[in-house]
């Protein structure tokens, strides 16, 4: 039989999975969504999804250290990857996180923002759909091009890779918080080339990988990171920077 355009429209409406969380309507005002959808998500299927919670303060009090927190535990057990970025940053990408089965799809980290911008985290679930959490932050700006605080301290090289950390018991997980001494140079400050931690893995004591984290230089200097693991398995955090320096911590 022949379908006219009205029938097509009707069919299309029924074909779209209609749930109350996911939608095609962007919750923030963005001029860059299509670009990042293509570039970072390869144009793959996505929904804007309130169940992916991306928290940030309404404004950046210190644009060099903006705390963001991502919670996709609504999809626990189904998460393959989590990508985060700040749309209007000169270096937009923040991290690429693969939580594994023993680590909750939650993460907190501090980032630099250069100006007011939408923030995004895209969570890929096993069914191949990207669930996108969004928020917006206001900023006076300049966080990416501000001179390094770390480099202004004499002898900072001697502290490179030192890790402060602690394990905290939460209701549903153990939270591992770390702060790693590293300048995280992003190449945007005159005369200082890129020098940043770009890889991290959380491992158990047998060396099995529990979670992998790729970092980008939108992450603040002296990165502060929280991961929530299930149960009280003893862990080792392994880190490497783009100059090949490796660092380890036990938590």
């Amino acid at each position: 039989m022949e379908l006219d355009w009205r029938s097509f429209l009707l069919l299309a409406l029924f074909a779209v999975p209609w749930d109350s969380w996911g939608s095609q309507r962007d919750p923030v005002t963005s001029v860059m969504w299509d670009y990042y959808h293509e570039r970072l998500l390869g144009g793959e299927a996505f929904v804007f999804d309130e169940r992916v919670k991306l928290s940030a303060p309404p404004f950046a009090e210190d644009a060099r250290q903006v705390p963001i927190q991502i919670d996709a535990s609504a999809f626990d057990g189904q998460v393959v990857r989590m990508l985060a970025w700040a749309e209007l940053n000169p270096i937009p990408q923040i991290f690429d996180f693969q939580p594994g089965e023993q680590v909750l799809p939650r993460l907190a980290i501090r980032i630099r923002v250069e100006q007011a911008t939408p923030l995004r985290v895209a969570v890929l679930t096993r069914d191949g759909l990207w669930h996108v959490g969004s928020t917006q932050i206001d900023a006076a700006g300049g966080g990416c091009t501000a001179p390094s605080v770390v480099r202004a301290q004499a002898g900072w090289e001697e502290h490179l890779g030192e890790v402060l950390g602690k394990r905290f018991v939460l209701a549903d997980a153990n939270r591992l918080r770390v702060q790693v001494a590293h300048p995280m140079d992003n190449g945007l400050v005159g005369g200082i080339p890129e020098f940043f931690l770009n890889q991290a893995q959380l491992r158990d004591r047998s060396g099995n990988t529990l979670a992998s984290l790729e970092l980008f230089p939108a992450v603040s200097e002296n990165p502060t990171i929280s991961l929530d693991v299930k149960g009280n398995v003893e862990t080792e955090l392994w880190l490497r920077d783009n100059n090949g320096n490796e660092f380890k911590a036990e938590l």
Partner: peptide, 22 residues
């Protein structure tokens, strides 16, 4: 409160953590 947490919380965090690098 949002501003003060940004200004001051890092000091409290550091005081509550220990060196864990190996």
């Amino acid at each position: 409160l949002i501003r003060s947490v940004s200004h001051l919380y890092p000091r409290y965090e550091q005081a509550a953590m220990q060196r864990v690098d190996r």
